[in-house]
Design a protein around this nucleic acid. Sequence first.
DNA 1: TTAAGCCTTGCCCTCAAGGGTAAGGTCAAG
DNA 2: CTTGACCTTACCCTTGAGGGCAAGGCTTAA
Lengths: 133, 133
Amino acid sequence: MRHEIFTAKVWREQANLYIGQIAKITGASRKAIRHYESIGLLPPAKRQGKYRVYSERDAFLVHMIKHAQSFGFSLAELRELVATTSKTPRLPLKMAQNLIIRKRAALRRQIADIRALDKRLMQLLRDMTRSFN
Amino acid sequence: MRHEIFTAKVWREQANLYIGQIAKITGASRKAIRHYESIGLLPPAKRQGKYRVYSERDAFLVHMIKHAQSFGFSLAELRELVATTSKTPRLPLKMAQNLIIRKRAALRRQIADIRALDKRLMQLLRDMTRSFN
DNA sequence: TTAAGCCTTGCCCTCAAGGGTAAGGTCAAG
DNA sequence: CTTGACCTTACCCTTGAGGGCAAGGCTTAA
């Protein structure tokens, strides 16, 4: 029964992929993909028996996660975006843009913090030099 | 015997302090102080029986560690400085200055990295906006 | 000698993002 | 029906700097 329904051809058309296939396609490790699911970043995968099966849409989500990570986003920061994306046909542009804008603001804050620290270090250095003379 | 030698008065003069006293003086927790010892940042404390006893010099070292931490130094970064300081009468100025200079260089690198990331995010935002129109 | 207040070691927990390995179950094909 | 490739859960490990707790030992003043 199942064998007739899920022939190789139909598989490819429905893109019912095991986790290893998704991993190969997206470049994420199997472990990472399960991890995303375990922390609720990806919705629980459908199962065929005990095996997780994924569609090309899921591959897109994983791709998105990897891409976003390379831009410095943490998995936690991506939760909402991924959740929404998995429920709507297209990437929620506004949400993604807001994410980026907030990240940029955080970066600006980081730079300010680092500069403040640098100033303190500079002053410390000056004080030490003075105590030398 | 020991009781005659280590009277309260003599104690105060020799500043033989239990870990709780050092903790109170320096503001570091007992746990933190033991932690510094366990990772080899502080030399193994002398013992009176099973209790660690510290001198005011040790208090100075702990103070130094806390101070340096507030300037963004990790315990690992302080290893050499603390080791040397604990073996010489005064703070090794040159070594401390080099540490600061190196830290400032690292901060500059961090800022460069953040700015590069910010540029990428800006570009990404532009691309997304374009795909909107 | 005893109570109160210190101190001791040892173990698990935190956060992020998985890596590594074990031990075993399952799938598709020959 | 077996083989080999793939999958499953489950547990421990990593970095940094300790926090929290347990269970018990030490000190010292009264």
